[in-house]
Each structure stands twice: as C-alpha cells, then as structure tokens.
C-alpha cells in the first residue's frame, strides 16, 4: 500500500526500458520496453501485483491528464498546421473505420478457421 515504494518499482522499470532502448539503438521506444519488461516480471514472478498495483491504478486512472501539456503544445504549432486541420480530422475518421473493419474481418476469419479445426467452444455469444 506504499505509493512511493510502488512508484519506485515502476520508475526502475522505466530506467531499465531506457537502458534497453539505448542498447537497441532506439529501435523501440523505452516506454514500450519498460511495459514489456514489467509484464514479464509479473508473469515470471519476481514482481507481484501488490508491489505495483495501487500506484499503477492511480496513474492509469489519470492517464489522460498527463497528456494535457502535449495537447497544449498545439498552441505553439497552430499557425504551422492551420491549413491542414480539416484534412487531419478527415484522415482520423476514415482510418478509424478502416482499422475497425479490418480487425472485425480478421477475427471473423480466425473464428471460422478455428471452428473448422475443432469443435471446442469459443466465447461465442
């Protein structure tokens, strides 16, 4: 239940992620490597859920707030992107529909293939 101790564990994973990212010459972002590392440590046992979960839940529940500075950064570059804003919004809408449709279609194919191979009950309805 000690928030600072749990933050320490999370920050240690961040630092390890940084080190890995440098070793990999920046091929993967350090935060993704830190996430993967923590997941592996949880699965293989050296870190238990109770070593991190309270601070982790606090950070996750407030994740959106930590992005406020990044969003406000738009003020600085607004003049630069003013002419592109409508196109950016259009790209976001169209690609979101494409992505969801492609995912749905793939999962549909996988279900059909799996049902043909075995009759094992899936999580169908």
């Amino acid at each position: 239940m000690n928030y600072i101790k749990q933050l320490g564990v999370l920050l240690a994973c961040c630092v390890a992620g940084d080190a890995l990212s440098i070793l990999l010459r920046g091929a993967l972002p350090s935060n993704v490597l830190g996430l993967t590392l923590l997941l592996l440590l949880l699965i293989f046992g050296p870190i238990r859920l109770h070593h991190v979960e309270h601070t982790a839940d606090f950070l996750l529940q407030n994740m959106a707030f930590f992005f406020l500075p990044a969003c406000l950064g738009v003020l600085e570059i607004f003049a630069q992107i003013k002419s592109e804003i409508l196109a950016i919004l259009a790209v976001c809408i169209l690609t979101t529909l494409c992505t969801a449709a492609a995912t749905a279609f793939t999962v549909h194919i996988v279900f059909r293939l799996q049902n043909r191979e075995s009759e094992e009950a899936f999580d169908h309805d």
């Binding site: 920050l11 935060n31 993967t36 923590l38 991190v52 982790a56 996750l60 992005f67």
Partner: peptide, 15 residues
C-alpha cells in the same frame, strides 16, 4: 505533469 507519462505507460502492464 508530463513526467508521469512514462511510469503510466509502464503501468499498462498491470491491466
């Protein structure tokens, strides 16, 4: 504020 971003991302391992 943005300092907390990296630990928050690493915390995604928990869910």
């Amino acid at each position: 504020i943005a300092f907390f971003l990296t630990p928050a991302t690493v915390a995604l391992a928990v869910p």
